[in-house]
Each structure stands twice: as C-alpha cells, then as structure tokens.
C-alpha cells in the first residue's frame, strides 16, 4: 500500500512518522512522488513576482493621516529638506546693520550657518551609502535628528526677525553641536553621547 498524498507531503517536509518515512525510503514509486512534490514546491517558489499597477502609497498616507490622533508623521526627511538654506535669508542683510554689535552677531551667525551647511553636506554624502548600523546606533541617530528638528522649529520661529539675535546664535550653536555629534555617530557607530 503506497503512501497517501498527505503522508508523501509529510515525508517531503521532513515531518513524517517513522513508518511513512521508512516506506518512502524503500519504495521507488513513493520516493519519486516525494521528489516530484519537492519540484512542484520549487516551481511555485520560482514563479515571477507581480507588481501593482497603481501606486497605493498615497492612499496609505491619506488614511493614516486621517485617523491619527497621535503624531504619526515626523518631518519628511530633515536632510532632504535642506533646512539650512531656509535660514540663510537672515544673512546678507549686513549692509543694513548699523551697529558694530549687530554686525558682529551677523558674522557669528554666518559662520555657524556655514559650518552647519558643511556638516549637512557631509551627512548627505554619507547618507547615500548603505551603512551597516546597529539598532542602538540607529536609535541614537534618530534621537539626534529629532533634536535637530526641534531646533529647526525654534529657528523657524525666531527667523521672522530680520536681525541676528543672541537667541538665534544660541540655536545655531546647538544645531552645529548636534550635527557634529551626528557626523561622528554615523562615522564611528558610537551610541553613547554626553550631550
């Protein structure tokens, strides 16, 4: 008596009882059928993938945004946004500045913005490489990015003022410090930061 299809499949999958496995080992017909079932499995797995003809992502975004009671969406890729460029408008008004103190603040801001842009550029170029990163390091990176995003929000508020201020310089200093930390984390994979 040959094996049933269910038994043959169990043999193929290595989960058959001793009796069924023993029969398959001794019976050429059943052994051939086990082999055929394995080939069917391989042929199924080798079927080509299918691609959706419509882009479903916008619908996912719309539905997620519609139902979120909490903050689901973080800012869309702070690096892509090129945020530093937004704030350079504050610079270049130096000609209009009257006092020495104001001119000095403007110069300081300009230096910090330039440094910020340099660091962002370094990050953008490392962003293109696929890096192997531990989950902890990735978590640190995201934390830093969140803190930079908070600074950017504060800068955007402070940015309405045409003139450089001490407050804004403080924010730019913090931004450069965080970017610097981000660069070193991405380079070295450090997770501890005394920030």
């Amino acid at each position: 008596m040959h094996l049933s299809l269910e038994e043959l499949l169990a043999v193929r999958d290595g989960v058959a009882g001793a009796a069924a496995a023993g029969h398959a080992a001794a019976c050429a017909e059943c052994a051939a059928e086990v082999k055929r079932l394995a080939a069917v499995r391989a042929a199924l797995a080798a079927l080509p993938e299918e691609r959706p003809s419509n882009d479903v992502w916008p619908a996912v975004v719309a539905r997620a945004a519609g139902e979120c009671e909490r903050r689901v969406w973080r800012r869309a890729g702070w690096i892509a946004a090129g945020l530093a460029a937004m704030f350079t408008i504050a610079i270049g008004v130096r000609g209009a500045l009257e006092t020495y103190a104001e001119a000095k603040l403007a110069r300081q801001t300009e230096t910090l913005v330039a440094e910020s842009q340099r660091l962002e550029k370094a990050l953008r170029s490392s962003e293109r490489r696929e890096r192997v990163m531990s989950g902890r390091t990735a978590g640190t990176v995201v934390q830093l990015e969140d803190r930079i995003a908070t600074i950017d929000a504060q800068l955007a508020r402070a940015g309405n003022d045409r003139y450089p201020s001490q407050e804004r310089i403080g924010l730019w200093q913090e931004r450069v410090r965080l970017l610097d930390a981000l660069v070193s984390v991405e380079k070295s994979g450090t997770t501890y930061l005394g920030l």
Binding site: W73, R74, G77, E130, A138, V141, V142
Partner: peptide, 17 residues
Amino acid sequence: AVDELTVARARAGDEAA
C-alpha cells in the same frame, strides 16, 4: 535588505523612511 537607520526612522514616524 533594510538598514537599521531606515527602520529606526520609520519607527519614529518619518514619512520618507
């Protein structure tokens, strides 16, 4: 292959990730 950073960003709700 999904890099850890993309996963971490996605978990933080980053739309691009």
